[in-house]
Each structure stands twice: as structure tokens, then as C-alpha cells.
Design a binder for these strands. Structure first.
Lengths: 159, 159
DNA sequence: CTTGAAACAAAAGAGAA
DNA sequence: TTCTCTTTTGTTTCAAG
């Protein structure tokens, strides 16, 4: 973990929201001249605190699509079967996120496909591929209510 | 919806992964000279296909934290109570995402806090605030298995 | 952290394929 | 239209203090 002062934190906060801001503008926003701001940013990037920069695609305007969450349970709870499932998950582009869970279910998957048929086809394919998937529940997203691009950095850092 | 040719699609794909790529480099990658590429990008942005650019903060390296998914059911299923809940959700910074679901549960929430105590405190606060939350289940994330920054654009556009 | 300078990128226009 | 080329302005990067 890295020591962050208020200005570093502000840099991160701004970049979360405006990933393509110019370094000159960023410097102004945090109250520094370009050089020291640039030094800080480079340090933050080198420390691995910034994972990367990404454009957010507005899928709604681009193509018909459906987002589905799937809570999944594996047949076997061996280390090998967890590994096999996790490897398999990487291979499907439609699975845009996956989390291992403590408690009732083993995994939560977030899947994006063109429609429900494509989703069902994907699930059938996964079942056929014998990646260890046993019980699962499907939750279809009817509306995105909130999609923050920003983590609550102050809350987490206690400032 | 917008008509995209192969090059537009390629621009979007690259920007999903490299949000801070220079326009000259982007042009080269898609096989255009800077100006036409810049024109296309401007059109894509104006059409609202690019929601924004964001830095990805590597939270693991920054502070202790826990991610929790919560499936939530409301007491009342009136339009007014949905609205009230959705408004309330916007106010909590710890709730980084929320989706309305069809089927068993009403909402799925993604929450990030420093630890489980902070999570429980937040839930208690939400229950006290009488925002309509009735039954809920907590799924603690033990491991992020996959976190694609990229949507499967080709799959969705059928190319 | 400041200054300053060289290298580079962004933005916009004129005009050719 | 869609691209190439050129120019101006602004940004990035990095010394040196």
C-alpha cells in the first residue's frame, strides 16, 4: 500500500471521472503546476494504483443487448474444480465479470448477450463443456439503476 | 442506433482497452491518417456511443476493502416505492452499482466498503431510513475472478 | 516545487481523390 | 464524401535549479 496525500487522492478522483483529461488541466484542477502533478501521476501509475484507462461504451445506443446475472454452484468443491471453472470463465467473452463468493453460492457471473436466446445458448454450451457448473440461477437485468464509475475513495481511506 | 463500419468498431474496441491512446496512434492502429480518424471519433462521441473515459483504480493496492453483492426485495411493489428505493440508492456512495431484476428479487446491489462491519452499518442505516428495503441476501466477494473492461462488441453486433 | 525548452499531439482548415 | 497534407495552438516530458 501507498501513502497518499490529499492531492494524490484528488488526482485519482478526477481521473476516475475524466480519464482523458489533459495533464495540464489536471494540474490546474489539483492546484499544482504541470511538472509536479506529472511526477505524482507517474508515481501513482508506477505503483500500480491506476490499472488502466478505458472508454465506456454506451451499449444501449449501439446494439440490442441483455445483461444477466447468474449465481452458480459447482458440482465439486475441490481446488481443481474451482480452478477449472475459473479458467473456463476467462474464455467466454460474454462473461464480462465473475466473482467468487463466500456463502450460499460459489460464483456470481455477469453476462452480456444480444438476447435471452443467446444467453440460454451460452449456458447450454457451458453445461455441455463440463466445466463443473451444477446449479445456477438466472437474474435478468430489466434496468440499470446505478453504474458508478467511481469508487468511494474517501470513505475507504477514511478522509 | 448508429451505423458502424468495421473501422468504427475497431476504434471502440481499442478505446475500451486503451482509453488514453493518442489520436495519432489510434489512427495508425485502425489504418487511417489522423484527420479521418479524428472525425470518426468525434462522431462516435457526439452520437453518445462513448459514455466517457475513466481511470481504473486498483483498490487492492490502495486500501483494505470488501465487495458485497446484495439481492434485495422491497416491501411494496408500487411504482412509488420503486422510485423511492432507486432514488435512495443514488445517495449512498458505497453502492457502486445497482440493477433492477426480473424474477425472484427486485434489485441487485454492488457495494464496496472498508470491511464487513462498515457494510453491516450501511445496511442498518438503509433499513432505518425506511427506503422500502425488506428482505435481502448478502453475498461477500472472496475473489474477483474476472473483470473485463471490454464488452463483446463483435458478438453483440454480429460481426 | 518552479522555470523553461524541445518534442510531441490535438484540432481545424484547404483542397485532392 | 472521405481522405491527405499542412498549420497553429496547446500538451507532454524532462532537465536544471
Amino acid at each position: 500500500m501507498h501513502k497518499l496525500d490529499k492531492i494524490d487522492l484528488k488526482i485519482l478522483k478526477i481521473l476516475q471521472l475524466e480519464g482523458r483529461i489533459t495533464k495540464a488541466a489536471l494540474a490546474e484542477r489539483v492546484g499544482l503546476s504541470p511538472s509536479p502533478c506529472w511526477d505524482r501521476l507517474k508515481k501513482l501509475e508506477k505503483a500500480g494504483l491506476i490499472g488502466g484507462y478505458h472508454a465506456n461504451i454506451n451499449l444501449k445506443k449501439l446494439a440490442s443487448n441483455v445483461t444477466v446475472f447468474v449465481s452458480a454452484e459447482l458440482a465439486d468443491h475441490t481446488a481443481a474444480s474451482f480452478r477449472a471453472f475459473e479458467n473456463a470463465v476467462q474464455k467466454y467473452d460474454e462473461i464480462i465479470a465473475c466473482w467468487a463468493l463466500g456463502g450460499g453460492f460459489d460464483y456470481l457471473l455477469q453476462i452480456v448477450t444480444v438476447d435471452i436466446n443467446a444467453y440460454q445458448k451460452l449456458i447450454d454450451e457451458m453445461l455441455d463443456a463440463r466445466i463443473g457448473l451444477s446449479r445456477y440461477y438466472t437474474y435478468i437485468v430489466t434496468k440499470p439503476v446505478k453504474a458508478n464509475q467511481t469508487l468511494p475513495l474517501e470513505l475507504l481511506l477514511g478522509k
